[in-house]
C-alpha cells in the first residue's frame, strides 16, 4: 500500500512540475509578446490566453504539488482535484474556441466552413493545457475511485 502511494505521489508530483513549467512558459512568452511554437506545442502569446491563462495553468500545477503528498487524505485529494478542474477550464475553453472557429466559413467564404477547413482547425499545434488534459483526467479518475472506496 505504501509503495502504491509513493508511486501515485511521484506521478502527481511530476504532473505538477510539468504543469508549473508550462504555466511559467506561458507567462514569460506572453510577456515577450510572441507566439512560440515547438512542433505540435504552441504557447499562446496574448495577454488573455497567455497571461491570465498561463497564470491559471501555473495555479493548477501548484495545486497538484501541494496535494501530491499523501493523496489518500481527503484534503490533499481535493487539492489535486481542483488542479485538474483548472486544467479542464483551460483546455475546455481552448477547445470551445476551436469549435466556434471551425464552424463559420470565414469573412469572404460561404456560410459554413468546408469539411477540410473544419477539420483543419483541429490540427496541431495545441496549447499546453490540452496536452495536460488526459493526465488530469486519469488523476481525477483515481481520486474518485479512492473516494468511492472509502
Amino acid at each position: 500500500m505504501a509503495e502504491k502511494n509513493n508511486f501515485v505521489m511521484i506521478c502527481i508530483a511530476i504532473l505538477g512540475l510539468v504543469t508549473v513549467s508550462f504555466g511559467l512558459a506561458d507567462i514569460l512568452v506572453s510577456a515577450g509578446g510572441d507566439v512560440t511554437g515547438l512542433s505540435i506545442l504552441e504557447i499562446p502569446g496574448d495577454m488573455f490566453r497567455g497571461g491570465w491563462g498561463g497564470l491559471i495553468v501555473l495555479f493548477a500545477g501548484l495545486f497538484y504539488l501541494s496535494g501530491c503528498k499523501n493523496v489518500a487524505e481527503v484534503h490533499n485529494a481535493s487539492k489535486v482535484a481542483i488542479g485538474s478542474v483548472l486544467i479542464w477550464i483551460m483546455a475546455g475553453t481552448d477547445i470551445f474556441a476551436m469549435i466556434t472557429e471551425s464552424i463559420p466559413g470565414g469573412e469572404d467564404g460561404p456560410w459554413f466552413n468546408s469539411l477540410s477547413g473544419f477539420l483543419g482547425t483541429y490540427a496541431p499545434p495545441y496549447a499546453p493545457a490540452i496536452f495536460l488534459l488526459p493526465f488530469s483526467l486519469v488523476v481525477v479518475y483515481y481520486i474518485l475511485k479512492q473516494e468511492r472506496a472509502r
Partner: peptide
C-alpha cells in the same frame, strides 16, 4: 482566489 480567477477566465 486562483479558482475565482479561473472561473472568470472561463
Amino acid at each position: 482566489i486562483p479558482i475565482a480567477i479561473a472561473v472568470m477566465y472561463c
